[in-house]
Design a protein around this nucleic acid. Sequence first.
RNA 1: CGGGAUGUAGCACAGCCAGGUAGUGCGCUCGGUUCGGGACCGAGAGGUCGCAGGUUCGAAUCCUGCCAUCCCGACCA
Length: 572
Amino acid sequence: MKWTQAFIPTLRQVPKDAEAASHQLALRTGLIRQLASGVYSYLPLGHRVLLKIIGIVREEMNRAGAAEILMPALHPAELWKKSGRYEALGEDKISFKNRAGHEFVLGPTHEEVVTELVGGSIQSHRDLPLLVYQIQNKFRDEARPRFGIIRTKEFIMKDAYSFDTDDAGLDRQYQNMSETYHRIFSRCGLTFQVVHADPGLMGGKMSQEFMVVCPYGEDRVAHSDTGYLASLDIAGRSQPPSSTPPAGAAPTEIFETPNLRTIEEISSRFKVPPGSMIKTILYMADGNPIAACVTGDSEINEAKLARLVGAGKLLQAEPHQIREATGAPVGFAGPVGLSVPVYADWDVLALTDAVTGANQADRHLKHVCAGRDFQPFKTGDIRFVKDGDVTPDGKGTIRLLTTMEIGHIFKLGTRYSESVGAAFLDDSGVRRPAIMGCYGIGVNRIMAAVMEEHHDEKGMKWPAALAPFDLELLSLNPAEPEVEQAAGKIYGELLGEGIDVLYDDRDERAGVKFKDAELLGIPFVLVVGGRSLKEGKVELKNRLTGTTEILEFPGIIGLLQERLKAASRAAS
RNA sequence: CGGGAUGUAGCACAGCCAGGUAGUGCGCUCGGUUCGGGACCGAGAGGUCGCAGGUUCGAAUCCUGCCAUCCCGACCA
């Protein structure tokens, strides 16, 4: 394709709204343009990259035995009510009513639709197992789109769903998808990690996330050099020893803290380190009030807390519920004398001289000692892990890494096959719900992740497998007829050989073309210029290695093909 | 949804505090000179200063409200 026909609006300066490297580069190289917050157009170069990614995904999914389908983006709201997820969709739902007054949801994911589809089409255990997938735009009204195409309201997802007769079948499909995902992300040139995620509270099913370490990700994982790796909702730590109060420790004492509610306010006003304060947060666990305590320098992890409590639904208490439970307004809760069950983090047990709320307006307690002044109902690990925590096996030191989730696989079980309906008759004639799994990949996120990983100060360095073109042909000074002719001839021959080439035929100065070529980051740039042309030579620049090779006529095309093949072999 | 910031030409910004004909750099158009690493000279085009209301003889500038976008956090089936 010729540059002058390609619609590649490169930018010299970085648009001020872009912060992440992938966002800046995607804008500067003319891959994307924003229409609204979290809503983007993909221009020819961006679209080509997406097609390359989709090509790899499709190839690997097909190889894995998955059958491609295409489901609608328009879902009757009724279907979501049937599965019970209509409410759970909440604010993220994008929906509208048609002229007949029927509500439709723009599909944020497709468990309901695929279960409806498959449920209506299978009858016997002989129809299973089944594995289907699609590549399609999803819609979620994200409260906060971020970092260009890393988190958008409309995004491209590959979603796959498996249906089996038993758990062993599900295990096989899950393993198959896990291996397929490894192949897909590797072929895309990504360095990734697989992290066990919160299995959720329904049935203890398994879930794993495929993560890329990246400063502009929106997840974090706990990692140690002893090989520990876990998402924060399940990341544990070793249990610290609890302390016993020193003999003759001071008794608790109430002190006045007018209008001082937060850890920071008390800490700075009374010079108490946050680590020796007890933060007490009230929750409603399946409708019953409970209190959770961590040290003032920690944050409660609600997933961990929910597991300790054994609660299905955990919500932060409303102000009136806090007042009922503690007898005080928000900001003065503490574990001492509290009538609701107290769930305390291990760290709290180590405090022998703590400050915490007195359960009275404008008052706190000091010299509080866990075990002496209050007895937790249960203790455990309920806070987010922090840098420096010790891994559960006691051997490693935890470091937090910022990561981007590019894929996830999940053993669903029968949640949707029961609620929406997908059942089969087993070999003894008993009607049973299919065992499901679901497997997602964020296609535009792969693009962003690759851009985060493969660039330098000059611009992109696309892995051969995803580059928008195999080769850029760059003619210096097209005003010289010999150069123009030679470049045109080479362009024609490359096209004839089926090489995907971008021909920079613009009437621009050499510097502009070189800079743009480096910015675009197509792996190979073939430079045709008057100087070397006189000696019957052209130059082949390798953007990835930064090296230049001189090629001589004739035989250029053949050599190029060798280089391109070698590059794509190296990538796969 | 809480906190912070920013909206002036395609992009990046100045002007606002101290109200008085809307500017700079890059890009763009035309002419000329250049031409292997983001050229130079000359002449141009391009803006309801985010929107609405108010104050004032007069508002990009002061006041009020709204909207949009970005960042931190909450959320993320």
